[in-house]
Nucleic acid binder design. Structure first.
Lengths: 120, 120
DNA sequence: TACCGGTACTCAGTGTTACTTTGTACTGGT
DNA sequence: ACCAGTACAAAGTAACACTGAGTACCGGTA
């Protein structure tokens, strides 16, 4: 997918992951799969792990190490209260942005009515 | 406004400006005012000018210098065909993203129905 | 005349974020 | 013994919005 999507994901990908963790705690590899299942097929693994490190450092999640039958131990992330609050903030910010942008699109539909009589 | 908004604007601010230019050509200072009128009150002037330089370099706009009664000459930006195409791409990408994220929010409302029977 | 506020644009430096690539490590199947 | 799949980590890159400072021109007021 294009560069446009990459840039647009900045600031939203964290919210997406927080929302998924709100549904259900998960470990990195699992989150990657879930994100992809939600239509974001081109998200790199490294991207998710780096993001999880960030949200852990910001203390939005609780972490628990759980042994795995295959591969290294899983780091299971659970959204804590700070994370829940951050997620609410995210929804507010998102709603604001989405509303403004959608209003721009509808205005766009009116463009044909005033494309005449343009002089300095 | 918060850091969240700043990050979320990445990739979308350009689309916002392109949409405004699609409505009507404008110069930098004017665009700044219009962006603010559309609810984005905290967008810095420098941000808009930098963005306009980028879209000009990407050749999404035609530029015309027009003398002003007050201050230096205005650089009037007009969306060209490449810009119109980019704007359409923007709407597609935006729709995709908005749809996925909104679907996450509705799932969130269902969370209470499936927070049980969770084992390895 | 001298100064100030408003218009209008430019540029250099900063922080954040997502991507890419590479590496480590463990398991089970052929 | 090898390979695919699982699971995590880390270093380097590119893009973008922000900050802050600077340049330049106009009209009004003291």
């Amino acid at each position: 997918m294009g560069k446009q999507m990459t840039e647009m994901l900045k600031g939203t990908l964290e919210g997406i992951v927080l929302a998924l963790l709100a549904e259900q705690p998960a470990y990195g590899y699992e989150i990657t799969t879930r994100v992809r299942d939600h239509g974001f097929t081109d998200i790199a693994e490294g991207t998710i792990y780096a993001l999880l490190v960030r949200v852990e450092q910001k203390k939005l999640v609780d972490v628990e190490k759980v042994p795995s039958e295959k591969g290294p131990p899983r780091k299971v992330y659970t959204l804590n209260s700070a994370g829940t609050q951050e997620l609410e903030e995210f929804w507010k910010t998102w709603s604001f942005l989405a509303q403004r942008i959608d209003s721009l699109r509808t205005e766009d539909a009116n463009t044909d009515t005033n494309t005449n009589t343009k002089e300095n």
